[in-house]
Amino acid sequence: MKIYVCVKHVPDTAAKITIIANNQIDEKVTFIINPYDENAIEAAAGLKKQVADAEIVAVTLGKAAAESTLQSALAMGADRGLFVHSDYHPDSLVTARALKAAIELDGKPDIIFSGNESIDSEGFQTMFRLGAALKVPVASNVVAFKMEGRFVTVECKMDAGSIGVIRMPLPCIVGAGKALNKPRYPTLPDIMKARKKPIRTITLDSLDLDSPAGSMEVVELRPAFEKRRGKIIGGPPEKAVQELVELLRAEAKVI
């Protein structure tokens, strides 16, 4: 069984973001594997234990530095890396086309895991576009996963505390939610072993993709300003609470 896992190289959530050239960020900050993609790897590693002859291939599209995210994926249990090297960050229409082309060039997927979203661009969509390109079903925001024969049953988080139970045939794509599992912390031996695992590199240009019918472009990026009143209410608790309720009513007008 061939298991592919899509992983993205993203700035650490705690990183200080500096905007350059009006629509990009300075990438000289710490980058990590997208947190949801860790759940995707963990799910793949869990599945590999259940089935005979499974191989996990971690695939990423990114600039040269993204190779370190493939290393993280290899340390967490992937067997091989597939690196689509690009010198810019394409939108998700192009990314999905590239991932499809790279995966098909590499092998025949039985199942693909992805994250539910990337925490930098928060697109919530790459896996659906990949699914449409490969003509396979997709379920996302998955919080439980089970495979029986050539069928997968997943539970997907919906609104207001509801869960949708979805059944789909292989091959398919499963978008991992945070509640799906607890990703492992790789040990030092895991990290050492990962360095010896193979990574195959393909350039985005060499994939010769057709051009999408649409595009999304960041034309401007600005820091998110917070204008808050910053009023700390002192005094005895009873009086402070009374004042707060009055402010919420008369000044802020929200209750």
Binding site: I25, V219, R222
Partner: peptide, 12 residues
């Protein structure tokens, strides 16, 4: 984007 640290304007 970026954990709420920036606001991006997109052209579609």
């Amino acid at each position: 984007q970026y954990s709420g640290k920036t606001v991006a304007t997109f052209k579609l």
